Simulated scan of single mutants.
Amino acid sequence: MSTPLRTSYPVPVEDLIPAARSLAAELGEIPSQNRLMKHLRVGKDKAKAVHAALIEERTADRSEDRTGTRLHSVPDADETGTEPDATDTASEDAAEEFAQVTQPTAPVSVRQTGWRSWFPRLTRRGGISPAHEPTRDTEAETGDEMRPVRSWPVLLLALPAFVAVWSGWVGLGELTGFGVVHPLPGIADGFTLNSAITLPIGLETYAAFALRVWLSGRVPAKARRFAMISALTSLVLGASGQVAYHLLEAAGITRAPWQITTVVACLPVAVLGMGAALAHLIHTRENGEK
């Protein structure tokens, strides 16, 4: 097995390519960027440059095999006055058979396995950005395949859900002590606000935002995990609130039990904490990133 370079000075990319080429020969395929980082003891940028150089060499070699295998000129017998030698004819036949057997194939793409294969390749630098190199999951579609999915049906789904969720949360809020308040005393005494509306605005808006962050696949792994857990938790709490309100309303109860009141009263604080934490994780770089 080839020995990785060890030196106290930065090694140019050109000096890393021979060692990477040897590793690719041993593996029988182009190693991934993570494998190159560990084997060559280099950073992400140099490993990416070496990986790109290996792919370029593989593509160039196969292009030469495709175009240069049969570029062999043999003079006619009439021009030279002699018949072609039997040995030369046999060599040409063998070369043609070898070219037919070893037809060039597409370059092997290194794909991630495990749960990381569920998401496209990411650039986690505190923001949402596409992958640097096109892969089977991220390359742009062309022709008839490039047909965006229309999202306008979501509006039809959201309107009735908005009415039901809004009325349910406002009704539950009134049963748990939320109600009309004067948010600007001494400034606008006539201005009133029903504090129950903070429940649907806060919880349901955060659930939709966390779902967007989770399913986008363009944020650091910690942020994606937190968004997944908090989004599912928010949806479960929202469904539980709707169930609690309709059960209380059907039973004719005008004041919710203290257990339900405690949970509902803590929801605005919980939403604030989850939203601040998710916003922080989205813009936090993971360990090892520069």
Score class of each variant (00 low, 15 high):
Ala251His: 09
Asp78Arg: 12
Gly28Cys: 09
Asp15Asn: 10
Val165Cys: 03
Asp85Glu: 15
Leu278Gln: 13
Thr105Arg: 12
Val213Glu: 05
Phe98Val: 12
Gly241Tyr: 02
Leu215Gly: 08
Ala221Gln: 10
Ala256Asn: 03
Ala140Arg: 09
Glu174Val: 01
Gly173Asp: 05
Ser167Gly: 03
Gly177Asp: 09
Ser117Ala: 15
Leu267His: 01
Ala131Ser: 15
Ser129Gly: 03
Ser195Pro: 07
Asn34Met: 09
Pro84Phe: 01
Ala231Tyr: 03
Ser240Tyr: 07
Ala210Gln: 04
Phe209Asp: 12
Gly173Tyr: 01
Arg136Ser: 11
His246Phe: 11
His72Asn: 12
Thr192Pro: 01
Gly127His: 15
Arg255Asn: 09
Arg116Leu: 14
Phe209Tyr: 13
Leu267Ile: 15
Arg21Tyr: 05
Ala53Val: 02
Ala25Gly: 15
Pro220Ser: 08
Leu36Met: 08
Leu156Gln: 12
Leu215Pro: 00
Arg147Ile: 08
Thr123Val: 14
Glu64Val: 10
Gly68Met: 12
Ala158Gln: 11
Val50Trp: 07
Ala207His: 03
Asp144Tyr: 06
Pro18Phe: 02
Ser234Glu: 11
Glu92Val: 14
Arg225Thr: 15
Leu156Ala: 06
Lys38Trp: 08
Leu211Trp: 07
Ser240Phe: 06
His72Ile: 14
Pro160Tyr: 03
Val181Gln: 14
Gly275Pro: 04
Ile17Gly: 01
Ala223Gly: 06
Leu248Trp: 04
Thr113Gln: 13
Thr3Gln: 11
Val271Met: 04
Leu16Cys: 08
Gln103Glu: 14
Ile201Arg: 13
His283Trp: 07
Leu156Asp: 13
Gly81Met: 07
Thr89Met: 15
Leu36Tyr: 02
Glu92Trp: 14
Ser167Leu: 14
Ala251Trp: 06
Arg58Phe: 07
Ala20Asp: 03
Ser167Ile: 03
Tyr9Cys: 00
Ala227His: 02
Lys290Glu: 14
Gly171Asp: 03
Asp85Pro: 04
Met274Arg: 07
Pro148Lys: 01
Pro160His: 01
Ser129His: 10
Leu23Trp: 04
Ala227Leu: 02
Arg70Thr: 11
Ile260Leu: 05
Ala95Asn: 13
Phe209Met: 13
Pro185Asp: 08
Glu26His: 08
Pro185Lys: 07
Asp137Asn: 03
Trp258Thr: 08
Ser2His: 10
Asp61Gly: 00
Thr233Ala: 09
Ala47Thr: 08
Leu54Met: 01
His39Gln: 11
Leu247Gln: 12
Glu286Ala: 03
Leu23His: 01
Ala244His: 04
Trp214Ile: 00
Leu5Asp: 06
Leu36Val: 06
Gly179Trp: 10
Gly177Ile: 05
Asp61Ser: 10
Asp88Pro: 00
Leu199Thr: 05
Glu57Val: 02
Ala20Leu: 04
Arg225Asp: 15
Arg6Asn: 14
Thr102Ile: 10
Lys290Tyr: 09
Glu79Asp: 13
Ala277Asp: 11
Leu247Cys: 02
Arg66Tyr: 12
Trp152Gly: 00
Pro183Leu: 02
Ala276Gln: 02
Thr262Ile: 00
Ala95Phe: 07
Ser216Arg: 05
Arg225Pro: 01
Val180Glu: 15
Pro4Val: 00
Pro200Ile: 04
His280Ile: 09
Arg285Val: 07
Val101Ile: 13
Ile201Cys: 01
Glu29Asp: 12
Asp76Trp: 12
Asp78Pro: 04
Glu97Cys: 00
His182Asn: 15
Thr284Gln: 07
Leu199Asn: 06
Leu156Val: 09
Asn287Lys: 14
Asp144Gln: 10
